[in-house]
């Protein structure tokens, strides 16, 4: 099977048109929306249910979100590894099957370790 960059041409055209649509929609509201010169300070202030906003909206956030992101990267890469495997699986036969089980086995060991370490516990991290 051979693929050239030109085979992806329709994709690039669609990408270009979609981006154009998105840009156009944003532009429309700037053009057709009412334009008021004097911007009241309250109007462009951050919304906090009618209270005056205290401090910045971009604050520090719990480290568990980072942890989830790191775990995601690890597992997602392994999920992606499954795809070439899955496409060729019927050709690989029994050999491929055992290779796959070894791969999943390694994955499971890591997964069980994470679970035991409490990396998947959302609440226990609160108490620490």
């Amino acid at each position: 099977m051979h693929t050239e960059l030109s085979d992806y041409l329709p994709l690039f055209i669609l990408l270009f048109l979609s981006t154009a649509v998105a840009g156009l929609v944003i532009l429309i509201s700037v053009v057709f929306g009412p334009k008021r010169r004097a911007k009241a300070a309250k109007k462009v202030a951050p919304y906090e249910s009618g209270m005056n906003a205290i401090g910045s909206g971009q604050r520090r956030f719990p480290v568990r979100f980072y942890l989830i992101a790191v775990l995601f990267i690890l597992f997602d890469i392994e999920v992606i590894f499954f795809y070439p495997f899955a496409v060729a699986f019927r050709q690989l036969g029994l050999f491929g099957f055992f290779e796959m089980m070894v791969f999943i086995g390694v994955l499971l060991v890591g997964y069980i370790w994470l679970w035991k370490k409490g990396a998947l516990e959302w609440e226990s991290m609160d108490k620490q």
Partner: peptide, 19 residues
């Protein structure tokens, strides 16, 4: 958005979607 509701929502969204 620089808004507390928004940043919390964004955080939740990212963690949920990637999980």
């Amino acid at each position: 958005s620089n808004n507390k509701y928004a940043s919390l929502g964004g955080l939740r969204a990212s963690a949920q979607m990637i999980s």
